[in-house]
Structure formats: C-alpha cells, structure tokens
Design a protein around this nucleic acid. Structure first.
Length: 649
DNA sequence: CCAGGCAGCCAC
DNA sequence: AAACGTGGCTGCCTGG
C-alpha cells in the first residue's frame, strides 16, 4: 500500500493506493463499512482527457473517499483493479461528485457502470454550488470549479490540483492537454492530487448543503437539476451522427475559400487577417475613413483601437446583414476579402474541423452538454458549440444526421421570452393578445403606432420588445432599426404607457434586488445575484432564467413520457430530436404537445417541424437549396477523398 | 513554448 | 436618467 498523508483544513488525511491482495482486502472492508453507514462517499476519476468518446480514451484511476480517507484505484493497471472499483461503484449507496456529468459518462463508457445506476445515488457539488451562486469568479461569484470552491469553503491553502499537475506535465515535456494521458500512473503528485479531489468534495458538500438551507433553496430544485443533468448526459452519451464525407468535403471547400480571399487581402498588405490593426491600417492606406454612415468619427473598441468588425467591413464591402449588395457605394475589395476569408476560416475550424476531430469510432459526435452553466442557469453546449451553428445558411448543419432511417425533428417555443415576460410582469394586455393567438409584435405596433402601422413601425415595436427583455435602451433600438432618435423615444414612451405592467415589473425587480442584498428570485426558487452597477439586468435575468427552467421542465416531462430516447439536443428554446421516418410527424406532434405548457396563466405554444436526414434540411428554405446540396455533394466529396489520400501519401 | 487576455463573431 | 442579456471558440498578442 502506498500512503500519502496530507493536511486539509488543519486535519490529517490519508490517501491510500492499494497494491497487494491484502491492500485490496482492506479496501473492500472499508467499502463495506462506509456502505453500511450510509454516508455519502466522494467519487472522482482521472482519465486521459476530456474526449470521453474518442477511440484512444482511457480511464486511469477511480477515487473514493471521505473527509479523512481517500482511496486511489489504479484501474488502468489491471483488470482486477477495475473490478474492485466496479464493485465499490455498485455497493456504495450514495456518492458525492463534482461535475457528475463528466464522471457518469466516463464510468458508463469505460467502467461499464451505467449512468442510470449512478444518477439516483449522486449529489453533484457543482450543481449545489451553482444553486448557491451561479457566477464565475470573474463575475464576482464563488466560481464553479472544485479548486475555487474548496479554497473558499474548505481550506484556503488547498492546492489547485489541476494547475499543480500542469507543472508536473511540463517536467516530462507535456502540456496541459497532453499531460493527462502521459503522466506516470505511479507519479506521487498525481496520486496525491487524485486522492485530494475526493477529500475536498467530501468536505465541500456539507458546507454547500448548509448554504442552500441558509438561503432557502428548495430541495425540489436540487432534485430537478440532478434530473435535468442526467437527461442531458443521456443525450451526450447517444451523441449525433456525423456525415463524415460531407464534412471533409466542406472543410476542404471552406479552406480553399478562406485561402483564396486571404490571397486577395495579402495583395493589399494584410498578412494576418485577424489582426484588426493590420486591416485598419491597410483600409486607411486605401483612403477609407472607417466612419460608419451617419456618424462623424470612426468607432473604437473599449481599448481605443479602431473598430473593424463585421458591421464596418460589410458597410465598406457594400453588403447588408444578409450579404446582399446594397448599391450604396463601390465595394472595397479588401474589406470584402477580409470578411469572406474570416467567415470561411472560422466555419472550417470551429465547426467542420471540430466535428471531424471529436467523433467516435462510429462517426458520432458527443458534444458536451452543460445543463446548468450560465449565471441565469442557461445551458451551454461545447466541443463543438452546437448551439451556435450558423442558422442563416444550411451548410454547417447539413453535417449532422439523424440515425439511419430516421428524420430530424425540431420543436421550438413561440416567442418564449416575450411570453415569460408577459406572465412574470404580469402584463394583462400582452397576455390577452398572446391568449388570442395574435402576433405579439404586430399587436404592439398597433398599440404604439395605431392600426395602420407600417413595416418599419413593426420593426421598431419588435426591437423595443427585445430591448425590454435584454435591458437595452433607445440608443440600441436606434442602432438596430435605423429609425430617427426622436421617433424611437416617442415609441418607447408609448410602449411604456400601453404596457404599464412591464415597466412596473422592471422597477419593482430592481428595488427588490437592492433591498435583498442584490439578489432576485425566480419562481422556481433560483437565486440570481445582480451586479451593483447593472441592476437593470434583473429583468433579463428573470426572463432568461425562467425560460431556461421552462425548457428543462419540458425535458423532464418528455423523459417522463418515454420520449427521452428521441432527444438529441436542447437549444435554449428548442428541442432537436429524431424518430423513424414513418412516425416522425406523429412523434414531433407528441413532443410539441408535451412541451406546450401554461406558465402562470400564459400559454407557451410550440411549433413542431420535421426535416429529412440532416439537421441542415430544416434550414433549406428554397428548392434551389436542395439542388445546391446535391451539386455540392457531387463536386466536393470526390475532391475531398483525393485530398485526404494526398495527405496520407 | 505555453497559458491566458483581448477582440471579434456565431447562436438564442 | 440611462443602462444589450447569456454563452463558446478563434487568432492575435503578451507575459512568464
């Protein structure tokens, strides 16, 4: 037995690494003892990295522990060690895991213990921490990582085990990415820190429980978040099929496009297209002023640099937001080349390449779904960021496929944030219009501008609606709509008169926040800390957080109704799913029915859509899109094969 | 050489 | 009085 003593919060702890049969007997007796006591046991894993589903992935150690005793099982060393870990995973009745979504999937895939078995036994300290304070350290919160939380609530001297290991990785010539797989499994610091993580999680949990009691966080919310997390983990485990041939071809095409336009930019002296300084200098050298239409000076970034973002470049290239010619000026060829090259480059690396590199042996990708991420509780999806795929163009989403013989389904909520705002305020006139099934922006425009409102009026009404949800003001609405400032201000005043409930809600929320120590509460019981200098954001937080809770409730309801297997992804106000081709319309209707709900007297309507095999099919608006897809396929796939053969050769 | 901050851009 | 919210990912750039 290898022993690693360590002082945590002034108390002696011991980490044990069993080696001999007698050591493992002792581990088994320890497991029996703690199981009989019923106390929750800290659980953690060390692995080769974060890409759980990639073909070369390995589970390296499994750790169990209490506040004083930790065990590190070097499962990669022997099948029998893994069996000891599996027995413990099945015997121990309750676990404490920090960020369980990760360890569930690791153990599900690499230790053969299904997440369905682990989920009911788990308390996830990351979820507890988020329910206490969902802000990152940079936002003034406690942070959500084991390190910052332990430093705050367990022991200020607790080492950053990950960072400490990076230094160890450097000694063997590895980086923070490559070190996890390369470090010797007998490395003393590695074993020490592996044990420390379960000692810390065991000590963190009771502190967080106390804080949740202190702040009256309802236990049903804790249970709800664990349920949501398990449903998202099931989606992550299933993943989504990738059309590898198409994606390879797409990557080649995007690379060529990016290179071609980069070549144009080079001719104007721009070497690094992402260097805003170079681009600004070159444009000024061509005689451009960088002054946006209607302005008297060029815009600058917060640090004072000349702004050369998409809006500036599109204007110089004589293109509108949809990349169509405006006809207002002669296009600047450099501006045009820079935006086109950057877009193609980003689409290639952030989307196409990421999809290809993250796929498993069955060509499925398993994006990480963080069920409780933003300070409002909003979810996020990473590796790749599937919630941010371009929606104005089908080419990226076309890479993702439903399973063989199935079709893609999408069901989204209609104007969910506006409806949630109407319900929370409450705003009777808005609720009436929603209940009557009217288009909300049309209705608002008719109230603000009269029954004969124009298209531009509707645009202003819509911008004000979003402005209320986001906390924006007249300046923002002016910028978005291009309407004269006086007209925007008059419309805002009219909006505030007709929707008094919204104005009152925003005011009350802010004063409530100030009175209650800069925290507001959602109907679900979630605490939303406010920034003192941005108390106006309270309205947005309430709306965004409640809309998130609505979608998560829908996920739970869908799972409850046996539709969990159909789910592929949550996208803020939308669920992406799949079903056998013949049943797809029926399944889509069923999902839409389950999702539709009443939110404090306001109906939340849903809109089911059934596509073809690919996710992109839902974004092909015209017949020409389908033809383009076919010709793309014919032209590019063969070429991509040739390119990858060249590379291999 | 690596890690992390900044600017910019993708989504809802 | 007015106040655009939440994320992830890239390349560039700087500091260690």
């Amino acid at each position: 037995m290898r022993l690693y003593p360590y002082r945590v919060a002034g108390e002696e702890t011991m980490t044990r690494v069993p080696e001999t049969p007698e050591d493992f007997d002792e581990f088994r007796r320890w497991v029996s003892g703690v199981s009989a006591s019923g106390q929750p046991i800290g659980l953690d894993t060390e692995t080769t990295g974060l890409d759980i589903f990639s073909p070369n992935y390995r589970l390296r150690t499994v750790q169990f522990g209490t506040a004083r005793d930790a065990w590190v099982l070097q499962t990669e060393k022997a099948r029998s060690t893994l069996d000891h870990a599996r027995r413990a995973l099945r015997t121990i009745p309750r676990f404490l895991i920090h960020n369980a979504a990760f360890d569930w999937l690791v153990l599900d895939r690499h230790a053969g213990v299904p997440l369905e078995e682990l989920y009911p036994k788990t308390i996830d300290t990351r979820l507890l921490a988020h329910l206490h304070d969902g802000r990152l350290e940079a936002e003034g919160g406690t942070g959500l990582g084991l390190k910052p939380l332990s430093a705050l609530f367990v022991d200020p001297e607790a080492p950053d085990t990950a960072k400490g290991l990076y230094a160890e990785f450097r000694k063997i010539g590895k980086t923070k990415e490559t070190g996890w797989a390369a470090i010797d499994v007998d490395n003393p610091l590695f074993l020490q820190y592996a044990g420390l993580d379960v000692l810390l999680v065991s000590r963190l949990a009771p502190v967080l429980h106390g804080l949740l009691r202190k702040f009256d966080i309802p236990w049903r919310l804790v249970e709800f978040e664990h349920r949501v997390s398990s449903i998202c983990s099931k989606m992550e485990r299933k993943g989504m099929r990738l059309d590898v041939d198409y994606t390879r071809a797409l990557a080649v095409r995007l690379a060529k496009e990016s290179e071609r336009f980069a070549g144009v930019a080079h001719r104007y002296g721009v070497v690094s297209l992402n260097s805003t300084t170079q681009v600004a200098d070159a444009l000024i050298g061509m005689g451009e002023t960088l002054i946006m239409p209607g302005k008297s000076a060029p815009e600058r970034t917060p640090s004072g640099k000349l702004k050369v973002d998409k809006a500036v470049l599109l204007a110089l290239a004589d293109l509108d937001g949809k990349w169509q010619r405006v006809g207002a000026r002669t296009p600047n060829p450099l501006a045009d080349a820079v935006i086109r090259s950057k877009r193609a480059g980003k689409w290639k690396t952030a989307y196409a390449d990421n999809m290809l590199s993250g796929r498993d042996a069955d060509d499925r990708i398993h994006p990480k779904i963080n069920s409780l991420q933003a300070r409002t509780g909003r979810m996020s999806i990473t590796n790749p960021a599937l919630q941010t795929l371009p929606s104005g163009d089908w080419t990226i989403r076309r890479a993702m496929l439903a399973d063989e013989g199935k079709r893609i389904i999408s069901v989204d909520y209609a104007a969910v944030e506006m409806r949630v705002l109407a319900a929370l305020a409450p705003e009777p006139r808005m609720i009436e219009a929603i209940t009557a099934g009217r288009d909300l922006h049309d209705f608002t425009a008719s109230l603000v501008f009269g029954p004969n409102f124009t298209k531009d009026d509707r645009k202003v009404a819509k911008a004000i609606g979003f402005g209320k949800v986001y906390g924006g003001g007249a300046t923002t609405i002016q910028r978005q709509t291009g309407a004269p400032m006086e007209a925007v201000q008059a419309a805002l005043a009219a909006y505030n008169r007709v929707y008094r409930g919204v104005t009152r809600f925003a005011r009350q929320l802010q004063s409530e926040g100030r009175v209650n120590g800069y925290v507001v509460r959602t109907p679900s019981g979630r605490r939303l800390p406010l920034d003192r200098d941005r108390v106006y954001a309270a309205t947005n937080y309430m709306v965004q957080s409640s809309a998130r809770d609505v979608l998560c409730q829908a996920l739970v309801d869908l799972d409850e109704r046996g539709l969990g297997d159909a789910l592929l992804l949550p996208v803020h106000d939308e669920v992406v799913a799949q079903a056998d081709a013949r049943e797809a319309p029926e399944v889509a209707r069923e999902i839409a029915e389950v999702m539709a709900m009443d939110f404090f007297g306001v109906p939340l309507a849903t809109d089911p859509e059934v596509g073809g095999q690919s996710w992109g099919s839902l974004y092909m608006k015209k017949a020409s899109d389908l033809r383009e897809q076919d010709s793309f396929y014919a032209a590019n796939v063969a070429e991509a094969e040739r390119v990858s053969m060249d590379r291999a050769a």
